[in-house]
Design a protein around this nucleic acid. Structure first.
Lengths: 207, 207
DNA sequence: TTGATTAAAACAAACGTTTAATTAGTGGTA
DNA sequence: TACCACTAATTAAACGTTTGTTTTAATCAA
């Protein structure tokens, strides 16, 4: 079955609505209305509201594994340069797809759909392995401080950007950014990158 | 009207259930069953499910303003020591009350109850003012690096711990912590504190 | 004609809330 | 102590909506 206009329209509108509100707070009637289709089409195309939700997340969660792997295993880069590349990659990745990462964020913080949660987790875990490898390598090569907590550093990067994307309304107020749109703009994105690169340089590198 | 056993029981069970699942995913029947009271008691004591939710969050959100203010305005402490004190305070505060901070976290990341969201925001904003003051003071005194992004540093601290608490299931896997209980234990808590103190020392202080 | 698509209507189940009736508790009066 | 009056607390049942899903029939394309 190929992707019809209507199916694509439903997915597109679902991404918008589910980015703003929880799974239960968005009804199939809301979805159908937004996508300008009949209510029955959700069940017809996806089987159920829940399957639509899963298909949406999975389809939009682009595979970052190959990129992370490429960075982590590059023999020509220094460890700190690899960290910089990861900062750039994650910042852009999360900020280019705020909707789906809001959804992923919420799925990881509740236990309503444990099977979906575990699926997301398994996809993320692979990246974690490569990142751990990369960080440990930095220590072994004597580039990074031995007593740096590289595990926390990695989750710090991910958590902080994820949090800013997920709670953009809140983050704007805290960071004195006037509008949510500006939060995802090039300028603020650069500020995030600069912050983390600067932060990790000071924290990880030996003096 | 004083707080009866039943009212307190409802609030206690509500905190557990709302910590695990969204507002809509927890029904009044779930709540009544868990608290071992009749369904009608939720409306009777709180007016509505939504008002119960609001009352729960507000009552459990202890006032951190005085503590933060005391730290920020203490004339005997150095700026970096103030940062250390804030790290200790926030870590314990969030990890001692994971349930309510999960709820707050979710409220800040959706727009289902904008009025509650803005109320939470206003309570948090006061702290932000004191923290900004404290950080700028560190720069003026020449203790902190001029080009440190203190705004992002503060939200980084808050976001990261909030994220670990909010997505504890996920965080366990990422940090190789076996159980969620251990995530809130003294040992891991100390690891968090050490990480951030070390991180900010390297990032903020002049060489 | 055949099979996929669309629409309107109906479905049962679950939702939050309210009603009406009953019990428990309190304070005052004798 | 006993009785009454009154309010608060509690219950079971029912309320009207809304939920996600299905059915049935009509329409369209090949």
């Amino acid at each position: 079955m190929e992707i019809t206009d209507k199916k694509a329209a439903i997915l597109a509108e679902a991404e918008k609505l589910f980015a703003q509100e929880d799974f239960d707070a968005v009804s199939v009637r809301d979805l159908a209305k937004a996508a300008n289709v009949n209510i029955a089409m959700i069940s017809y195309y996806f089987g159920s509201k829940e399957k639509l939700f899963e298909e949406l997340i999975i389809s939009r969660m682009a595979n970052s594994q190959t990129t992370i792997q490429a960075i982590a295993t590059d023999p020509t880069m220094s460890s700190i340069d690899k960290v910089m590349a990861v900062v750039d990659f994650y910042t852009d990745r999360l900020m280019n797809n705020p909707g789906v990462h809001r959804m992923i964020n919420r799925e990881l913080s509740n236990s309503s759909r444990p099977q979906l949660r575990d699926l997301l987790l398994s996809k993320i875990t692979t990246n974690k392995e490569y990142l751990s490898m990369m960080m440990e390598e930095g220590k072994k090569k004597g580039e990074f401080r031995e007593d740096a907590d590289v595990g926390l550093a990695m989750i710090n990067l991910f958590a902080c950007i994820q949090y800013i994307v997920g709670s953009s309304y809140y983050s704007c107020k805290m960071l004195d950014v006037p509008t949510e749109a500006q939060l995802f703009d090039k300028e603020f994105r650069q500020r995030i990158k600069t912050y983390f690169k600067d932060l990790f340089s000071h924290y990880l590198l030996k003096k």
